[in-house]
């Protein structure tokens, strides 16, 4: 039963991926991609990784899908001629087939070989984590790995996110280039739902953050939920990005700065970079995580709201009329 479930789930995952790859209709590919994210969350569950399932449920099935739908809407707000031209490209004799085929088959064979002839692991990481978990300040092993044993990764990750959002801001069109969209239509039912759902979302985000110290959850999942809540609000017609512009700027860098400050200030006490003093590890980790949650949520939200508005191609059309 158990294995049958996994086999069917794996095949379904492959099927949705094939659906994404082979759809002529771009929107169909995107909906298939949302289904793919949901199935991937189930796969993480079956791989005994509820943390990943939590992140995937918020990101794969939620945020990425919204981003993709928004991008397709951006294209179709102008014309889908490009999509039709794309089909022409598909059958163009100019496009060589050898590159895709070789890369596909080569990667497949190489990776199968890597799995077949894998070296035996010389150290057992799970055992090392289990032996040291008592000193880490938290009970949940994944949080311990993320914020204590391998906190370099997390620090650099938040730095990468920060760089991404700075690049996104730099790519923003100049003010006069942007055509202000009319405020979205007031929809009382959606408005009501969002107003009631927002406290629940913030509460769940905080719960997931807090739960991270002893069970699946933590800063990343909490941040993803916070981001999804903000995106939800923005979509429902609340101008979150305009209300929160100053808070946004402050919050973006907060997680990185706090993390770096803690990491450096322990060096004053003569300890190595990115370690925690005894006895305070738990509190410091929770503090850093709370700031990280805020930052990740705000960063992911601004990566959504920094998108050029749909009028981006209106200028394009206007130019066409001029000719």
């Amino acid at each position: 039963m158990n294995l049958a479930f996994d086999i069917v789930l794996g095949l379904a995952l492959l099927l949705t991926a094939l659906g994404v790859f082979s759809s002529k209709d771009l929107f169909r590919a995107v909906v298939m991609f949302i289904a793919f994210g949901l199935l991937l969350a189930l796969v993480w569950v079956r791989l005994d990784a509820p943390d990943l399932a939590l992140a995937e449920a918020a990101i794969g099935a939620g945020l990425t899908g919204v981003l993709m739908i928004d991008a397709v809407a951006h294209l179709s707000a102008n014309t889908l001629q490009n999509d039709q031209r794309d089909d022409q490209y598909d059958h163009s004799p100019k496009r060589p087939l050898w590159l895709p085929v070789i890369s596909c088959v080569g990667l497949f064979v190489l990776l199968l070989g890597a799995i077949r002839f894998r070296p035996e692991a010389s150290v057992s990481l799970p055992d090392m984590v289990r032996d040291n978990i008592a000193e880490s300040g938290v009970e949940h092993p994944i949080t311990a790995v993320l914020l204590n044993f391998r906190s370099y990764d997390t620090l650099l990750e938040i730095a990468v996110l920060l760089v991404a959002v700075v690049v996104a801001m730099a790519l923003k069109p100049a003010a006069e280039d942007r055509v202000h969209q009319p405020p979205p239509a007031h929809d009382p039912i959606l408005h009501g739902l969002t107003a009631r759902l927002l406290p629940a979302m913030l509460l769940v985000g905080m719960y997931v953050l807090w739960a991270g110290s002893y069970m699946p959850g933590g800063a990343f999942q909490g941040g993803a939920i916070l981001a999804a809540a903000l995106v939800f609000l923005q979509l429902a017609g609340f101008a979150v990005d305009r209300y929160a512009a100053s808070l946004l700027r402050l919050g973006l860098a907060l997680g990185f700065l706090v993390f770096l400050t803690v990491a450096v200030s322990v060096m004053i006490g003569g300890r190595p970079f990115l370690t925690y003093p005894e006895g305070f590890a738990g509190q410091l980790i929770f503090f850093i995580e709370a700031m990280l949650t805020l930052s990740i949520g705000l960063i992911l939200f601004s990566l959504f709201s920094q998108n050029p508005p749909h009028s981006g191609a209106v200028g394009h059309q206007g130019a066409n009329h001029d000719q």
Partner: peptide, 12 residues
């Protein structure tokens, strides 16, 4: 939550 969400989604 699913009740509220699905009712709203159906309406939308």
């Amino acid at each position: 939550l699913v009740l509220a969400a699905s009712a709203t989604a159906s309406y939308l």
